[in-house]
Simulated scan of single mutants.
Amino acid sequence: MEAPLEEIEFLARSQNRVEVLRLVAAEPRTRQELATATGASQATLGRILEDFADRSWVSKEDRRHAATATGELVADGISGLISVLETEQKLRPLVAYLPTEEFGFDLRHLADATVTVPTRTRPSAPLQQVRTAIEGADTLRAFSHTLNEQTLSTVHEQVTGGDYAFEAVLSRSALEALAADASLWSQVRELSRRSNATIRVSEGEIPVAALIADGTVSLLVRDEHGILRASLSTDSAAVREWATDRFDRYWERANPFSPLDFN
Rank of each mutant, 00 (worst) to 15 (best):
L34P: 00
E9K: 12
E61T: 14
A168E: 00
G46P: 04
S173I: 07
D245E: 13
S258Y: 07
H225Y: 13
D106A: 10
A177L: 11
V115D: 04
L220I: 14
L152F: 02
P259C: 03
E167K: 10
R200G: 04
L5E: 14
W57S: 03
A66W: 02
Y97N: 13
D248Y: 13
E176K: 14
R193C: 09
E224L: 13
S59W: 05
R246G: 04
D76W: 12
L191V: 02
Q187W: 00
A209L: 11
F262D: 06
S59C: 11
A66E: 07
L21E: 04
P93T: 14
Y164Q: 04
R55C: 05
R194V: 00
R189D: 02
I206K: 02
D223F: 00
E205L: 11
A165Q: 11
Y164K: 05
A40G: 01
F247N: 12
E176Q: 15
V84M: 15
G226P: 05
A35I: 06
A254V: 03
L98S: 06
S79M: 11
T30H: 05
V84D: 15
S183R: 15
D106T: 09
T216E: 05
R55A: 08
T216R: 08
L11Q: 07
A69W: 10
Q158S: 08
L211P: 00
P99V: 02
F10L: 10
S195T: 12
R63K: 15
V115P: 01
T30M: 06
L94N: 03
N16R: 13
W57Y: 10
R189A: 06
E135P: 00
S236P: 04
V24R: 03
G46A: 09
R253Q: 14
T139S: 15
S192P: 01
E19T: 15
P259V: 00
V155L: 08
T116C: 09
T121H: 15
L140N: 01
L11W: 04
Y97D: 11
E149V: 11
D138R: 15
L178R: 06
A230L: 05
H65M: 08
I134K: 06
S233I: 03
L220P: 04
I134Y: 00
S186D: 15
P118H: 09
L211C: 04
W185S: 08
